[in-house]
Design a protein around this nucleic acid. Structure first.
Lengths: 95, 95
DNA sequence: TAAATAGGTTTATAATGTAAACCTATTTAT
DNA sequence: ATAAATAGGTTTACATTATAAACCTATTTA
């Protein structure tokens, strides 16, 4: 795909892309916030966040908000870079 | 996904998107041309073209070039529309 | 104290993408 | 004349992925 550079499969996914997009704008977000904004199921979101974390694109922190568990996500530099590259590559497909 | 409109799964695929992108610019293309441009395997391309045809996004014509089989593809109005919508929706994810 | 709610994770299933294997016919080499 | 390579694909098998259903633990409300 000379003019069609490969699209990072980790980002070429509707839900993961939406999550990354959100994380880019807010820089830190709770699980429930992401769930509402993306209108995804918790299970699906949980799985996709795991993948993004394992790839080093985001950081996940677990703590408590009062007595309730709280999962907070933050985009990492590698994630920002990957996202930017993805968008650059994508442009060759859609313009 | 209020602000994240669903991305047409038929277009949210690296190879199919590349094919549609090519067909938009040339308006008619041979199988081998698409194969070279996308650097895909024939098998993969064949399958993806089938899906695009069944969805009504492209038209596939089979004929002969000399004595050899020739498969020619052309984008259809529904394909153009779907592509444009896809790009519009995608923008909310990547800007 | 039973039932609902919050905040998730795990697991099972369905859908998808991909390449390998295959097929038919044609051309080239021996 | 026959074998091997090439052209132009299709079919099939497999691996990966996406997704929701089921589940879990704890908390709050009826």
């Amino acid at each position: 795909m000379s003019e069609f550079k490969p699209l990072d499969p980790l980002l070429h996914s509707q839900l993961r892309l939406a999550v990354m997009s959100l994380l880019l704008s807010v820089e830190e977000a709770e699980f429930t916030f992401l769930k509402e904004k993306t209108e995804s199921t918790a299970g699906n979101l949980s799985v996709q966040l795991d993948k993004l974390e394992k790839s080093g694109y985001i950081q996940i922190e677990k703590s408590f908000k009062g007595k309730r568990p709280l999962t907070t996500c933050k985009i990492l530099p590698a994630g920002v870079k990957a996202f930017e590259e993805y968008v650059e590559n994508l442009k060759n497909y859609i313009n």
